[in-house]
Simulated assay, not measured.
Amino acid sequence: MILNVIFLFFVVYLLIQAIIEKRPPYKKMRRSIGFRGGKIIYIDKQQEVKEKGVTYGKLLKSDKYGLSGKPDYIYQLGEELVPIELKSSEADDSPYYKDVMQLVAYFLIIEDVYNKKVRRGRIVYRNTMFEVYNKKYLKKELLNLVDKMKKMKQGNYFPEIKPSFALCRFCPCRGTVCEIYNDASK
């Protein structure tokens, strides 16, 4: 009897875990940029009038991951740091893959530079906003992409795809280390 109860709890636990893992790493939200009670600590633009305690337009570099970037904003909510990336395009039911990978790169950069774990970030499109959560598999996916980009740059990796607008349009390698789409469009 006790074994049946333990087995039942174990099965329920596995089902809940499977449901959690299948949820997307983002949540669609009503569009807004700031946070109530939040404080801006970083802005990616120069200002004529500067606020004390805010970093303006500095390139953030992570030596640990070999990444650098400039998120549009970083808010501080208590001890939590939240990067925000503004986009001029519109999105439908999910954020674009390249934008999610860009935000995940900011998670890693901020964790290295500020020495604080980042739990979430936001991508704000013209028509909607997504809160993206810092998941291990997203970090792994980004580091895999970075590794492939390094190999492409060194000439040690050549993806086996034919260039096409549909495939290359949102690829994070387009216009950086990949010349495939650019060569085909000439």
Results as ranks from 00 to 15, higher is better:
residue 3 L to M: 10
residue 4 N to I: 05
residue 4 N to F: 07
residue 5 V to R: 08
residue 6 I to Y: 13
residue 7 F to V: 13
residue 7 F to L: 14
residue 9 F to I: 13
residue 10 F to N: 09
residue 12 V to S: 04
residue 13 Y to Q: 07
residue 14 L to Q: 06
residue 17 Q to C: 09
residue 18 A to H: 08
residue 19 I to L: 01
residue 19 I to F: 00
residue 20 I to G: 00
residue 20 I to S: 04
residue 20 I to W: 02
residue 22 K to N: 09
residue 22 K to C: 07
residue 23 R to I: 09
residue 26 Y to L: 14
residue 26 Y to A: 14
residue 26 Y to Q: 10
residue 26 Y to G: 10
residue 27 K to V: 14
residue 28 K to R: 13
residue 29 M to S: 03
residue 29 M to Q: 06
residue 30 R to S: 12
residue 31 R to C: 14
residue 31 R to F: 13
residue 32 S to F: 12
residue 33 I to M: 11
residue 34 G to C: 12
residue 35 F to C: 07
residue 37 G to L: 11
residue 37 G to W: 08
residue 38 G to Y: 02
residue 38 G to M: 08
residue 39 K to L: 09
residue 40 I to K: 01
residue 42 Y to H: 02
residue 42 Y to N: 02
residue 42 Y to W: 07
residue 42 Y to P: 00
residue 43 I to N: 04
residue 44 D to L: 03
residue 45 K to A: 13
residue 48 E to L: 15
residue 49 V to H: 07
residue 49 V to A: 11
residue 51 E to W: 08
residue 52 K to G: 08
residue 52 K to T: 15
residue 54 V to A: 11
residue 55 T to Q: 15
residue 57 G to C: 14
residue 57 G to V: 13
residue 57 G to Y: 15
residue 58 K to L: 15
residue 58 K to G: 06
residue 59 L to E: 11
residue 60 L to C: 13
residue 61 K to A: 12
residue 61 K to P: 04
residue 62 S to R: 15
residue 63 D to F: 14
residue 63 D to H: 13
residue 63 D to Q: 14
residue 66 G to P: 03
residue 67 L to N: 04
residue 67 L to T: 04
residue 67 L to A: 03
residue 69 G to H: 01
residue 69 G to T: 02
residue 70 K to S: 11
residue 71 P to A: 09
residue 76 Q to A: 14
residue 76 Q to C: 10
residue 78 G to A: 15
residue 79 E to H: 10
residue 79 E to W: 06
residue 79 E to G: 05
residue 82 V to K: 00
residue 83 P to M: 03
residue 84 I to H: 04
residue 85 E to H: 02
residue 86 L to Q: 04
residue 86 L to T: 06
residue 86 L to P: 00
residue 86 L to V: 09
residue 87 K to Q: 05
residue 88 S to K: 11
residue 89 S to Y: 05
residue 90 E to Q: 07
residue 90 E to C: 03
residue 90 E to N: 06
residue 91 A to R: 05
residue 92 D to V: 08
residue 93 D to E: 08
residue 93 D to N: 10
residue 94 S to K: 11
residue 97 Y to T: 09
residue 97 Y to E: 10
residue 98 K to W: 06
residue 99 D to N: 12
residue 99 D to W: 12
residue 101 M to C: 03
residue 101 M to D: 04
residue 103 L to S: 04
residue 103 L to V: 07
residue 104 V to C: 10
residue 105 A to S: 04
residue 105 A to G: 05
residue 105 A to H: 01
residue 106 Y to D: 07
residue 106 Y to I: 08
residue 107 F to S: 02
residue 109 I to H: 03
residue 110 I to K: 00
residue 111 E to G: 05
residue 111 E to K: 08
residue 112 D to W: 05
residue 113 V to L: 11
residue 113 V to S: 05
residue 114 Y to S: 06
residue 115 N to K: 04
residue 116 K to S: 12
residue 116 K to N: 08
residue 117 K to N: 01
residue 118 V to Q: 03
residue 118 V to R: 01
residue 119 R to H: 09
residue 119 R to G: 09
residue 120 R to N: 10
residue 123 I to C: 01
residue 123 I to L: 06
residue 126 R to C: 03
residue 127 N to D: 10
